[in-house]
Design a protein around this nucleic acid. Structure first.
Lengths: 240, 240
DNA sequence: ACCTAAGGTATACGATTGTATACTTCAAAG
DNA sequence: CTTTGAAGTATACAATCGTATACCTTAGGT
C-alpha cells in the first residue's frame, strides 16, 4: 500500500515553522487576545508544531513580537510613502499652474484637502487588507511588554518623520515650520493608527471614519498654520 | 499571654476582600502586566486571600475590570469638571470686562490659553497622584477584552461630553459649533489620556508633556474655528 | 562521501492553573 | 436565641503550563 501524497511530500524546510508561528500569533491575537496572554503550547498548537520548535526561532515572546513588528514595518513603510506620492501626483498636476498660496488660498487649500483625502483612503484600504497586523500593533502599543511598546513607538515615529518629509517635499503646506510639522505628524500618525481599529471593527461606518481622519488632519494642519502666524494663508479659504 | 492587637481586631467584614482584590489587580497591572495575563491564583496571592474568595465578589475578570473602571470614573469625572471650572474661575474674572472676541482677539485668545494651561496642569497632577488607575485604563483601552474596551470608550465619551459642555457654558470659544466641538473633545479626551502614560513614565519631561498637550488642544480648537468659517475671530491673535 | 548544524519531534516532569466540594466564622435579621 | 446568608478558608484534582533531555531528518559545505 502506498503512502498518501501529502505524507511523502517534504515541504521546503526553510524556517517554515517561523512563518507558521508568526501567523499563528497574528491569528490568535486578532481574536480578543494579547501577546502576553498567549501560552507557548497554545501558540504551537495553533501553528501545528511541537512546543519546543518555538525556541528554535525565538528567544521569548518579546522576540516573536519584535520580529512581527519588524516585518510589519517593512510591509507598510515604503508602500505608505508611495501612496502619498501617488496621491499627490494624481491631484497636483491637474492644477499645476502653480498659483501661490497668497494668490489663491481657496485653490491651494483644495489641493491639500484632495491629497489628504486620497492618502487617507489608500491608507485605510491598506489597513483593511492587513487587519490582523494592525490589530496586534495597536494592542501592543499600550500593552504589557515594555520592549514591545518602545518598538512600536519607534515605528510610529519613523512613519511620522516620513510624513513630515513628504509634506515638505511636496510643498503641501508652505506655512508650516519644520518643528511644528513634525509634532503634528506624530499626533496624526498615532491617531490614524488608533482609528484603524474602528475601521476594521465597524465596516458599515468606514466612510464616516475616513471623514473623521480627514477632518482631524485638516484641523491640525490649519490650526498649526494659524498659530505659526501664517493664518492669512489659510483663513481666506474658509470665509463665505 | 494576650494576643497582639492586630490579631484581635476584626476589621469590618464589609467586603474587605473586594477592595484587596481590586488593589492587587491595580498593583500587578501597573508593573508590565495586563489584566488578561493575570491568573486567579496570582491575584489572590497578591491580595493575601484564598483563590476562591475571588468568586465571592466577581463573576470573572471582566467583572473585576468593569468594577475598577466604574470606580475610576466616579473618582475622576466630577473632580475633572471641578478642575475645569476652577481653572476658568481663576483666570476669567481678572479680565471680566467682557470684551467681545471681535473687539480684541488677542485678549480673548489669551484667556482661552490660560484656562487651557491651568486645566491641563491640574489634570496631569491628578494623573500623577493616581498613576496605577490610569495605567490600567490606557492598557485596557486597546487590550484583549472587548467588554473592557467598550466600557473604557464609553467612559472617555462621557468625559468628552463634559468637556464640550463646559467649554460651551464657560463661553471659551464662541466660534465653535456644537458638532465640531464634541468631535474635538473626543479627540482631546483620548489623546490626553494616552499622553498621561508618558507623564507617568517620564517624570523628567513633565513640563514638556504639558506643553505638548496645551499645543494640541489649542491647535485643534483654532483649526476647527477656522474651518467653521470663523477664522476672523482667532487669526488676528497670531499675527505679528 | 562524510559531517555538521539547523529544523522539527517525542517524552517526561514538576509547577501552576481553574474550579469543585465542604467547612468555618460572624453579623445581623427573625 | 436562633437562623441564615455572606465572606473567607482548606483541600483536592485534573488539566495545562514551561522546559529539559534525547532523538530524528535533511540541506549544504568540505
Amino acid at each position: 500500500m502506498e503512502a498518501p501524497w501529502f505524507m511523502s511530500i517534504k515541504k521546503n524546510p526553510q524556517a517554515e515553522g517561523k512563518r507558521l508561528l508568526m501567523d499563528a500569533a497574528l491569528t490568535l491575537t486578532s481574536n480578543n487576545r494579547s501577546l502576553s496572554s498567549l501560552s507557548l503550547r497554545e501558540l504551537s498548537r495553533e501553528a501545528g508544531l511541537n512546543p519546543n520548535t518555538f525556541y528554535r526561532h525565538f528567544k521569548d515572546f518579546d522576540d516573536l513580537g519584535l520580529t512581527i513588528i519588524a516585518e510589519l514595518t517593512d510591509q507598510i513603510r515604503q508602500p505608505l510613502r508611495d501612496l502619498r506620492r501617488e496621491a499627490a501626483a494624481s491631484v497636483l498636476p491637474l492644477h499645476a499652474v502653480d498659483v501661490s498660496w497668497e494668490e489663491n488660498p481657496q485653490l491651494n487649500m483644495k489641493r491639500f484637502m484632495q491629497v489628504n483625502k486620497a492618502t487617507i483612503k489608500l491608507f485605510f484600504d491598506f489597513v483593511a487588507s492587513n487587519p490582523n497586523a494592525f490589530i496586534v500593533g495597536v494592542r501592543e502599543l499600550h500593552g504589557a511588554s515594555k520592549v514591545m511598546r518602545h518598538a512600536l513607538r519607534n515605528m510610529m515615529s519613523a512613519f511620522a518623520q516620513d510624513m513630515a518629509e513628504d509634506v515638505e517635499m511636496l510643498n503641501l503646506l508652505p506655512g508650516l515650520d519644520k518643528g511644528p510639522l513634525l509634532a503634528l505628524s506624530e499626533v496624526i500618525s498615532r491617531d490614524t493608527f488608533l482609528l484603524s481599529m474602528d475601521y476594521i471593527e465597524l465596516p458599515d461606518q468606514r466612510d464616516n471614519i475616513c471623514l473623521q481622519a480627514e477632518n482631524l488632519v485638516a484641523t491640525l494642519f490649519i490650526g498649526s498654520t494659524v498659530i505659526g502666524g501664517q493664518g492669512a494663508l489659510v483663513v481666506g479659504a474658509f470665509e463665505d
